[in-house]
Nucleic acid binder design. Sequence first.
DNA 1: TTGAAAGCGCTAACAC
DNA 2: GTGTTAGCGCTTTCAA
Lengths: 346, 346
Amino acid sequence: MDKKPTIKDIALLAGVSKGTVDRVLHNRGKVSQKAFESVNSVLNEIDYEPNLIARNLKNNKIYYIIVVLPDPAFDPYWVPSINGIQEAIKESKAFNLSIKIHYFNPDSTESFINVTESVLTLAPDGILLAPLFYKEAVTAMQKFLDQGICVSTFNNQILFQDNINFVGQDLQQSGRVAAKLLDVLQSKGEFAIVHVNEKYENSVFMQEKEKGFKNYFSEKEFNDSLISTIQLQDSNIEMKFNAFINQNPKLNGVFVTTSKAYQIANIIIDANRLDISIVGYDLISENINYLNQGVINFLIHQNPKRQAYLGVMHLIEHFVFGKKIPAISLLPIDIINTENARFYLD
Amino acid sequence: MDKKPTIKDIALLAGVSKGTVDRVLHNRGKVSQKAFESVNSVLNEIDYEPNLIARNLKNNKIYYIIVVLPDPAFDPYWVPSINGIQEAIKESKAFNLSIKIHYFNPDSTESFINVTESVLTLAPDGILLAPLFYKEAVTAMQKFLDQGICVSTFNNQILFQDNINFVGQDLQQSGRVAAKLLDVLQSKGEFAIVHVNEKYENSVFMQEKEKGFKNYFSEKEFNDSLISTIQLQDSNIEMKFNAFINQNPKLNGVFVTTSKAYQIANIIIDANRLDISIVGYDLISENINYLNQGVINFLIHQNPKRQAYLGVMHLIEHFVFGKKIPAISLLPIDIINTENARFYLD
DNA sequence: TTGAAAGCGCTAACAC
DNA sequence: GTGTTAGCGCTTTCAA
């Protein structure tokens, strides 16, 4: 036989009807011992794979999926995420799906709460969430789960319950990647970890990166690096960081844990301290500019597009094909320099 | 309306039958002016997307796809490619597809010719080919095309005809990536480009990498690097490269254009010249070992798994859904160090 | 407990 | 030219 076996074939071989085969396959019961055995013996002989597509044909339920993420107007980092979602939508337009995006203001926990609350009232089948604020996200997710809504997360992991899926990066490891890069750039290092705009008080992800960065050096043989940590806000960034580099004339490496490496680059240029290497995050255009100018040495790509794409895709495949969503999908930590950047750009 | 419109809906709205709608949608002719206009006006009102899956349900033709690539027994580089193909097979088992892999010996053009000839006699619907040998690949591809077989290529690009699709990397650019990496590792550089086992006389891909590498430095401001090129064979590698580093005491960077960086690393360790940085290709275990030991500084990942995966997937989607195969899919040039390697491993 | 039949969206064969 | 019909693989309903 050249074609894949179908329930029709099985029914024929087992001497029962398609309906009975279906009942056996799905353990729906109401099958006589004899029929059950006869079907099973056929199933053991051949290797049957149900045609997921035909199964879905019948299913004319519309699945509602809502994606909740920061408004890119506040932070361009999220633009690729939206493209990823749109790509997923395009690829699965053959199915009966309604996928909508809801934005919140990444600077406001209130906005996050409002948006999640209003999404809750829409009672979708599934939600993909960028859980920026730890406490608020836990509260929201609990409510979603109580309503029987399937929740997936991306961007940053919330350790909360086993049944929450996550797509993103290992943040601690990405701190180690940054450390290794600065380590090869500056054999003898005096480094600073810079957190810019850590206004999300609940967030832990910058701390994770910091931890990985420090671990790398503390585990290193013959380690003689000096590492300091500095917190900056939009309002004081120039003044405070300028003061810092003046006080640390031997500083030769900076690890910026957010997308704001370009702001640091700016200050370093003005201070004429181009001897300082910078490793930062994210391929936003300001960063790419300074990367090309050689002020930023490496960027780490968090692949927000693929994160969002995979996040929705998992939900879609779960609803449409009944696939299990992987508990955790860790994306690679991409290292970017001037020469390979363009391949990662949207 | 909450559901996507179907031809049935269109037929209803246009006051014709499903058959007529189908004829209009596919320009099959035999439609009266009136019916044509009526259907088209409906189509303009709503946005109809055919359900590709339902379309395919009907199609019970089996598509035969053959993948032709080097036997991994000769070169472990190809192991991930095979996994990529297997993954594609697994994901599309719902369709009537027969996908088989045929191996050739990457050290023998004869073997390549034999395998492509025998594949030709099997008259598959599509072929995915790793065209290692330029001349022989052109000959084979011409024959495939003459027989109406759909040909896609991966790994290395053969500039031959417009209708040949390619999945892989921009090799010249990957040479530039390597150059940039050595450039930051050694501010003042005396570099060697090492081609190991360039026995594929027809192959151009090592030359491409070399070109990119050299271009990077020649375009660089204040360039004072010295670059030499050296060709090695398995038989003479140790002797010849040892002699080379002895003659070049100031050599401080090596770019290995194949997977054989570990062999160079070996020699460099024995010669006690750990001051020399190495950038090479591919995440095979020997290379990863030396990467972790700090002898190899960076590896460039060519993502053979994804190359093969996408190559077959394009063919599958072409046959099953009638999608157009993108002429060229350039994968990112991944930079690998000790800290991010594990995310790229199979 | 079981088989028969209808139907998901689309295509193709066949009458009229 | 055009409508009808059967059928792809599977699920679900209904009658037996």
